[in-house]
Design a protein around this nucleic acid. Structure first.
Length: 336
DNA sequence: CCTCCACCGGAACGGAGGGGGA
DNA sequence: TCCCCCTCCGTTCCGGTGGAGG
């Protein structure tokens, strides 16, 4: 029935392309760190850091998959910590990966789960995505003494994760390989989109101009770019159009962005929200001014130090942007 | 070039709350 | 069930940093 979308699978977030379009350097670095597993040697833990939509998840899954094709007795498992943020669920997912989760339930003792993981005798590559969202870092503490587990940690910032860990785990991670990702450039996004378009859409279903608009709107974020493309293509199909029209793209851009913005806003506490509101109602404010306005609008204001922490969190969520240094620093809310 | 000022964020601490083990 | 421990959050203290202005 659809004419624009030929293969919807290719437009899904979690679709893993056969070939990586960019990021060859990052794949090489990661392969090199993990390759010792091929010779029965101990691989290095790796840490992938960078902004969201920069390809971290994709590269991690791609590299681990490739490696597994080469060796049979390597276990690997991917866990999105955003969805599995407590200890039980993470450990459960790991056991699932090795097929010993059959009789595990709510009241299974923690140590029982841990010792089952310890009992795995083949190397285990564990990919923990969005590890900074892991509510219970204790899970990492349980895992780090296990020599057969190699951790691939994915996060926006490395410090965010390491700061909350204990000394021994920090020192294990200090010797890990850190791979930094930057946002995609506009040109990279265009070719990345064209790759998906070739496999996912009918020939000639979208013009170069519209692909470029999508790449511009995504601002270096591949997940957003693909999301916009998907939503525009659906819209065109829904209305029985033969190709993606400019109006389809226009309609897709705000929905993709607003959804993320809304999701992030919902995660804020009342105090964090108040700080955000101060900025949303103003143009650009220096920290001093932000605090004074925040202080006057909540019944029991937190300290300035805490508000500084909030501002950084808002920055992480792409809700707020800072500019300048020292006394010239200002903050502004990012438009949806 | 030096000093001052505003701001940044690390470290250490304590209280609150939740979950696990006896 | 109760108690303890672990973890998180916010606070206090403070050293570091980078413009602005003398």
């Amino acid at each position: 029935m659809t004419t624009v979308i030929q293969n919807a699978r290719v437009l899904q977030d979690d679709f893993l392309p056969k070939e990586i379009v960019h990021r060859h350097e990052e794949v090489n670095q990661m392969s090199k760190a993990l390759e010792p597993v091929l010779d029965d040697d101990r691989p290095q833990d790796t840490f992938l850091v960078g902004p969201s939509g920069a390809g971290k998840t994709c590269i991690a899954r791609y590299t681990v998959d490739k490696l597994q094709e080469q060796v049979l007795d390597v276990e690997s498992h991917y866990i999105d910590c955003w969805q599995h943020s407590n200890r039980f669920r993470v450990l459960y997912k790991i056991l699932e990966g090795v097929g010993t989760s059959y009789d595990v339930h709510r009241s299974t003792p923690l140590d029982e789960m841990v010792s089952r993981i310890e009992a795995v005798d083949s190397p285990y590559l564990l990919v923990l995505d969005e590890v900074d969202q892991l509510e219970d870092k204790g899970v990492l503490r349980k895992l780090y003494p296990m020599p057969h587990i190699t951790m691939v940690l994915i996060a926006n910032r490395k410090r965010e994760v390491t700061a909350s860990l204990d000394e021994r785990l920090q020192s294990r991670l200090r010797s890990s390989v850190t791979i930094s990702f930057d946002r995609y450039t506009q040109a990279e996004l265009v070719s990345l989109l064209e790759d998906r378009i070739e496999w996912g859409l009918a020939p000639g279903a979208i013009s170069t101009a519209q692909v470029e608009r999508i790449a511009d709107a995504a601002a270096g974020n591949a997940r957003d770019a693909i999301g916009i493309l998907r939503s525009a293509a659906r819209n065109a199909d829904h209305e029985g159009a033969a190709e993606i029209r400019p109006a389809d793209v226009s309609a897709a851009i705000p929905t993709a962005r607003e959804e993320l913005h809304e999701r992030n806003l919902k995660k804020l506490t009342d105090d964090q929200r108040a700080v955000f509101d101060v900025l949303a109602e103003a143009d650009e404010l220096p920290p001093r001014e932000i605090y004074e306005r925040y202080e006057s609008r909540v019944p029991e204001p937190k300290t300035e130090r805490t508000v500084r922490t909030y501002l950084r969190k808002l920055d992480d969520y792409d809700l707020v942007r800072s500019a300048g240094n020292g006394p010239n620093r200002t903050y502004e809310a990012i438009e949806r």
